[in-house]
């Protein structure tokens, strides 16, 4: 039987990390025999009296159960979370879902992130043994998240940052152009892992396919409203799958097949807010 009751989680500390975004450190009492969280998996965070919501790990729980997460304020639950001080008791369930695929020996990965979509990829970058390239798109400099991590990553990996609005107000790079350049100059990577607003991910996937990368080597992390995290509440459906157990990481060809079989076209509408 699954357990739908959260375990207590302590808010250790936080710092501002991007506009309306905070980098939180949490600690949960580790359970014996608990599977280790994999990059790309998520957890349900309960704010007592408000509700639960899904967030991804920036760094997975260590032996003491300490982990961090990057959270942007978007609704009532995050507003309540942002009002809490270190020491506050929250609730935790997880880890849930299917994370990113592991890189095979010697495999080169290309990561493309938009806005807060950088957070679920952090674990991949930090644990990468082989070569790795990263394209990070954001609305503007203030919106960029994981500043400390990016500073660290810049030293080890090829990292391209683009801004819809640069410091001079004009676009500074473009994620799809950066993608094309990387693919043209460095050839096809073993895998592309992408996380960000859905239209951006779909555009990235199409860009990769246009460059000859098979859809089976492209992975997207899909965001859906999630309540239970265990495949029961039904909210996070994508075709006949549930993102909380079958995702949130989907192989692009599988994602397309799910949508086609369910008679739904891939989303094309622009997001209400840019990444």
């Amino acid at each position: 039987m699954i357990d739908l009751t959260p375990r207590p989680l302590r808010l250790l500390e936080f710092y501002e990390d991007g506009e309306a975004a905070r980098h939180f450190s949490f600690a949960v009492e580790p359970l014996a025999g608990e599977p280790a969280a994999q990059p790309g998996q998520f957890f349900m965070l309960a704010v007592p009296g408000v509700g639960e919501a899904a967030f991804t790990y920036v760094s997975p729980p260590d032996a003491e159960g300490r982990f961090s997460a990057l959270i942007r304020r978007t609704g009532t639950l995050t507003a309540a979370l942002f009002a809490l001080a270190p020491g506050a008791v929250l609730g935790y369930r997880g880890p849930f879902g299917r994370g990113w695929p592991a890189a095979g020996p010697g495999e080169r990965l290309l990561l493309v992130a938009g806005g807060c979509g950088l957070a679920p990829l952090a674990g991949v970058i930090d644990s990468a043994a082989g070569e790795l390239q990263l394209i990070y798109a954001a609305r503007n400099r203030a919106y960029q998240v994981l500043a400390r991590e990016r500073a660290r990553w810049h030293e080890r990996h090829a990292l391209v940052e683009t801004l819809d609005q640069g410091d001079d107000g004009r676009p500074q790079g473009h994620p799809l152009e950066a993608l094309a350049r990387v693919l043209d100059e460095d050839g096809l990577p073993a895998k592309v892992l992408c996380c960000g607003p859905e239209p951006l991910m779909l555009a990235v996937a199409r860009g990769c396919i246009d460059h000859g990368l098979p859809a089976s080597r492209i992975w997207l992390s899909l965001e859906r409203r999630m309540h239970c995290g265990v495949g029961l509440c039904g909210h996070c459906y994508i075709g006949s799958s549930y993102a909380c157990v079958d995702g949130p990481s989907y192989r692009y060809d599988e994602y397309l097949r799910l949508l086609a079989a369910s008679g739904q076209a891939a989303a094309t509408a622009l997001p209400p807010q840019p990444c």
Binding site: T74, P197, E223, C236, Y237, I238, P271, P272
Partner: peptide, 11 residues
């Protein structure tokens, strides 16, 4: 509202 997300995105 079944799939509506906090960001306004609704699949």
């Amino acid at each position: 509202g079944f799939q509506q997300e906090a960001s306004g995105h609704n699949p």
